[in-house]
């Protein structure tokens, strides 16, 4: 029955005393990538309020403003900090909106993968036997197929089911499912392993003997145990999901040009690479690379900080 403020203070005291916080403050690189990630998140999710232009407001687009280089180049326009693309859209704004879509798809895909993976891992671990074998064999098979192939396959099949026209309406959802389905295996394996460990412990046996629902009790022990590893996997998966989304969009099976993500922007710009309009590709590409790098650095650090063996 602590007062909220007391709780906050208590929480902060515990956090600032923890090993994770300590290793966080020790590495400048990690702090920098956390800062970059934060800036990108704010820039992306605050795009409707922060972006200088609305690239989707067709009325505001001037075709005469197309292919403007960045401000510091000859012919740059102060209105467009990073220049414009082939349709005269402000590149900075498109990138902000594009990162928003990329991050959204990335997050949702990771959550989807986590949900599927944790559920299947729990089921496989508890039921054991044929169900377990089946789930884990599917996982093995899937693991030997690269994620990008799985995502392409899911995308292709969904096109067949939904039809081309409706497919672009659901492009984002399809991407989330496609990417999510290609990354669930790691979660399932981690959770299943932990379930098997908990299941053999005596308190579960004891609970069974006196007729309590052992699985329910054990789940409460399993989930805290896998929280660390799952968080690490999720962080690294976020980076992978963003890359996969960008790749699919670049290949032209992801998001349509009317709703461009970072990958779509790079794809559009790639057509103009030879005619000298390098900025249309390079800026979204740089944003993508820096974002993924920052997330990867965070994931790397988190993995080392949570792994007691390496300390």
């Amino acid at each position: 029955m602590m007062l909220p403020t007391a709780r906050v203070i208590e929480f902060w005291r515990k956090t600032s005393d923890s090993d994770i916080y300590w290793s966080f403050t020790r590495s400048k690189l990690v702090m920098l990538s956390a800062l970059i990630t934060l800036i990108f998140f704010i820039g992306a999710f605050g795009a409707p309020w922060l972006a200088p232009h609305n690239p989707f407001d067709l009325a505001s687009l001037e075709l005469s403003d197309a292919f403007k280089p960045p401000v510091w180049e000859d012919g740059g326009d102060a209105k467009y900090l990073l220049g414009t693309d082939d349709q005269g859209r402000d590149l900075l704004s498109t990138i902000m909106y594009g990162s928003r879509i990329s991050l959204m798809v990335g997050f949702l895909a990771v959550i989807f993968a986590m949900g599927v993976g944790i559920t299947l891992g729990l089921v496989a671990g508890y039921l054991g036997g044929a169900v377990d074998s089946f789930i884990m064999r599917v996982a093995d098979v899937q693991l030997s197929f690269p994620a990008i192939l799985i995502a392409l396959l899911v995308d292709g099949v969904s096109r067949g089911i939904l039809g081309e026209a409706r497919h672009s309406d659901f492009a984002e959802a399809v991407l989330v499912v496609a990417i999510g389905l290609s990354y669930w295996v790691q979660y399932a394996r981690t959770v299943r392993g932990s379930v098997l460990v908990e299941k053999s412990k005596e308190y579960v046996q004891a609970a069974r003997v006196i007729g309590l629902p052992g699985p329910l009790i054990a789940i409460r022990h399993v989930l805290p145990n896998v929280l660390g590893p799952v968080l690490v996997i999720a962080t690294i998966n976020l980076a992978l999901a963003i890359i996969t989304e960008a790749t699919l969009s670049f290949l032209g099976v992801g998001l349509p040009p009317t709703e461009p993500s970072l990958g779509t922007l790079i794809r559009i710009g790639n057509d103009f690479l030879f005619s000298g309009e390098w900025w249309i590709t390079i800026f979204p590409g740089a944003v993508l690379a820096i974002l993924v790098l920052a997330v990867n650095l965070l994931g790397d650090w988190l993995r080392d900080a949570l792994n007691p063996k390496l300390r």
Partner: peptide, 20 residues
């Protein structure tokens, strides 16, 4: 950290940069 850059650059982006 250098190797992290390697796995953070999407393949298609590496290709585009090399072409550029």
């Amino acid at each position: 950290t250098v190797s992290l850059i390697g796995i953070s650059l999407p393949t298609f982006l590496i290709g585009i940069l090399l072409i550029l």
